[in-house]
Design a binder for these strands. Structure first.
Lengths: 229, 229
DNA sequence: ATAAATTTAGACACTATTGTCTAATTCGTC
DNA sequence: GACGAATTAGACAATAGTGTCTAAATTTAT
């Protein structure tokens, strides 16, 4: 976090570094203490910056809070779309590939710092800032879910899956992948790699029991119809 | 004795009525404003009670908060166990019965006032009161999930379902039933009956595609083996 | 009816926090 | 090294909230 290598002087940081440092600290503190519980001095201390600097940058507490949420929303969305682009369109091993995808999604978008913070802030302050969080809803789930649904639709069309409603399937995929992490999320914890893998594995297996073809699509297309039980 | 006919005076309420009224108002306010954002005057006003009365009953803000969480936990647990007792052990129409069960669970335990409040308080303040919420975890999910799992295990044993791990299946059942309510929950909203029914219907269908037998158990047992595709 | 317990409004001391201001310092850049 | 911009510590007024205390009013039980 803080590299104090110099013996007596504090290492100077640029304007931008301070800006970033304020965003980091504010995210942390708002998340930990809630908007009302957070105070500017705490954020300033955690950012290693004077209180006045925060007021110079952001005007007041509420503007700072809004900036944090916008920033987190953007970063999370970027991460989610980056992860969606790794969706297995031509899976070699459908189960393994979907499990790996679910794990990536969880690790890089849901359980990471930004994901955790954004989730917490939405849950905690969502009702107090309807317009801000309506914005999140549009930019977030409103765009990511259809994107995931489109990938599942493609997979189904290619014969790997048997899906009627890709939107429903996408939501259920995510719900199943997280099914065993709910309690941990509730309490603000971060599940370890093993829990994430477990939940993803169980979730994907169930998902494939519901929506999988009996055989891999490539095989199925070669051998035409064997239709086993 | 108990005739409130007085025309111009505010109807007096008993000690116990005030106690309940404080609990109600405090739940509401803590939930809406978070612990730090809530203040005693607000609660007193909402409860129609003087501030001092709250201090008389509960000592201080933190003790009041703890009392609220304990109360909500208890009430929610009671509701969940009551609902679990309506689990369809001898289903006539497995899909319809499970959907109805999922709807009851959502309506009476997750989406109702107590469920919503408890969820919000756990999410918001969980990290600040580890021991209190550890208690919730034990009393809540720690006892309800196994109870639900046991019902699914029985259903599987009776030949209605094909389940390896009932604990996993139970968690996934709940996750699927709520899959389409996540965003609404996030923002603190209350889904209407139609959304609840939709989500439950889709969730249970997927659940049965994954874990259902091809035929109703009764039939399957009579006709022994037909094993259709 | 009367006594005991509870509730009430309001004042109160105390603390915490926000947001502003200033004067000195440090930084980035030429 | 010199200049303007950014940052700093600290004081500051203004506000809001907690928890206590009082004396009067009201409720409950005897």
């Amino acid at each position: 976090m803080k590299h104090d290598v110099s013996p007596d002087t504090i290492p100077p940081r640029s304007h931008e570094a301070k800006r970033a440092s304020i965003m980091d600290a504010a995210g942390e503190v708002f998340c930990r203490e809630s908007f009302a519980g957070a105070n500017i001095d705490m954020i300033a201390a955690e950012a290693g910056v004077s209180r006045q600097t925060i007021y110079n940058h952001h005007g007041d507490k509420e503007k700072l809070f809004v900036a944090i949420v916008r920033d987190l929303t953007e970063r999370c969305n970027a991460g989610i779309f980056a992860t969606i682009s790794t969706f297995p369109d031509q899976p070699k091993d459908l189960e393994a590939d979907l499990i790996a995808f679910a794990v990536r999604m969880n690790r890089n978008c849901i359980c990471n710092r930004d994901g955790k913070f954004l989730r917490k802030l939405i849950q905690t302050e969502g009702e107090r800032y309807p317009e801000l969080f309506a914005e999140w809803r549009e930019q977030g789930p409103g765009r990511t879910w259809p994107a995931i649904a489109a990938r599942f639709a493609r997979l189904a069309h290619a014969g790997f899956l048997d899906i009627e409603d890709p939107d429903v399937a996408a939501r259920q995929f995510l719900a199943l992948a997280n099914a065993e992490l709910q309690t941990t999320f509730m309490l603000g914890g971060t599940p370890d790699d093993d829990e994430v893998l477990q939940s993803a594995t169980h979730g994907v297996r169930t998902f494939l029991r519901a929506f999988g073809k009996r055989q891999p699509a490539a095989e199925a297309q070669k051998h035409s119809a064997l239709a086993g039980a």
